[in-house]
Design a protein around this nucleic acid. Structure first.
Lengths: 203, 203
DNA sequence: AATTAGTTTAACCATTCGGTTAACAAATGT
DNA sequence: ACATTTGTTAACCGAATGGTTAAACTAATT
């Protein structure tokens, strides 16, 4: 980062830290466990990242940088609303099935420390609703969809796509479904959710 | 609980533990902080609840016992599907606005320890989808709603109602909305969400 | 070969944390 | 009145934890 040559150690640490932090959260993670996971000496963690807090922030920012473009796909894209909803749902669920820990990690840590969001809000690619809002308002005016508040619609889209990943243990228990069947249900949702949304707003 | 007389101390501890655990989670909570919050000596925590783990479980079970009946309102009630969706949405959002920490706490701790759910599954009032599933299938057969999978519909209802409480810091940031405006949006959702759902499944 | 800068390790340190102990106070029962 | 049980406190304990240090090691640079 600063004086360090391009060493593989720094990368190994970040990967290990990612796994441990995402599984156990900031408070539950142990520096020793991260070191073990990376198969290096614990002092190396501090050599490269100075403190647990800074290592955590590196992991968090990387995770957020991975998530943000996914959301911008629906917020900033130029294609038609219905197409966007379909492609977003399809892509987002595929993406999340590859990174199931991601949304929970981000949500949990932001709840733990809400001030933390200010520091990432400055990020260039921070998702923002304004363009999406204009598009929805235009569609309402044109009469292609029912009268709907853009913020509420965005919350609905996000909820339907993200929540099943955040609350999976709970949902599995309520619906008496095992891991494989749940995966199949998520697969179905790639189209079922967009059908649901479009039905809800279509005139 | 066991040999203790109906002392107010035990109750004070549980209330304080609830606040601290729900704000900071199992790993982030400190026994000393709970004692301070309850204005009692730390040793009392162990006198009444033996260990941090057991105190945590008491808090968790109480929280879950508060949540479960809310869910059973839509799963086990006999009224018509559309009415249930409306009343559930209305009641659930009102309820959550009074207990905003609840869903996050439960979801977070179940993700931290998925085995933990087995111990509460035995609970008599543990929410179960089976009756709701039958009702949805009947409505589909009668032709009053579009063909829809009951589990998926249940996930959708849950997502739309719960997620805005779980991810509030994130949503507030994306939509550029402050605390008061967000509260107003949640208020709107009491009817907006049920309209959205019913629109989505109506023929 | 000697110097230097960067990297790695084992041992160590101070603090925090969950939990215990022993003495004491206040009820409760006889 | 006395004894026993229950409730409360301060002081303490050992283990775990984030972080530091100083020395050893490695590999370029001169």
């Amino acid at each position: 980062m600063t004086k360090h040559k391009d060493n593989q150690t720094e990368e190994k640490i970040l990967i290990a830290a990612q796994q441990v932090f995402q599984a156990k959260g900031m408070d539950g993670a142990r520096m020793q466990e991260i070191a073990d996971e990376a198969r290096i000496n614990k002092a190396m963690l501090h050599y490269y990242y100075r403190s647990k807090q800074l290592l955590f922030e590196a992991v968090f920012n990387k995770a957020f940088a991975l998530l943000a473009p996914q959301l911008n796909a629906i917020l900033n894209d130029d294609s038609a609303l219905e197409d966007k909803i379909r492609s977003f749902t399809q892509n987002y669920i595929s993406f999340m099935m590859k990174h199931p820990y991601l949304p929970n990690f981000i949500i949990q840590e932001l709840n733990r420390n809400p001030k933390f969001i200010e520091s990432i809000k400055n990020n260039v690619a921070f998702p923002n609703i304004s363009k999406f809002k204009m598009q929805v308002e235009q569609e309402v005016e044109k009469g292609t969809i029912v009268s709907v508040n853009a913020e509420q619609l965005f919350i609905n889209i996000l909820s339907l796509n993200v929540f099943p990943f955040v609350a999976s243990p709970l949902i599995k228990a309520f619906t008496n479904v095992d891991d494989n069947a749940y995966k199949a249900m998520l697969e179905d949702r790639k189209t079922a959710v967009s059908d649901f949304i479009i039905n809800a707003i279509k005139k």
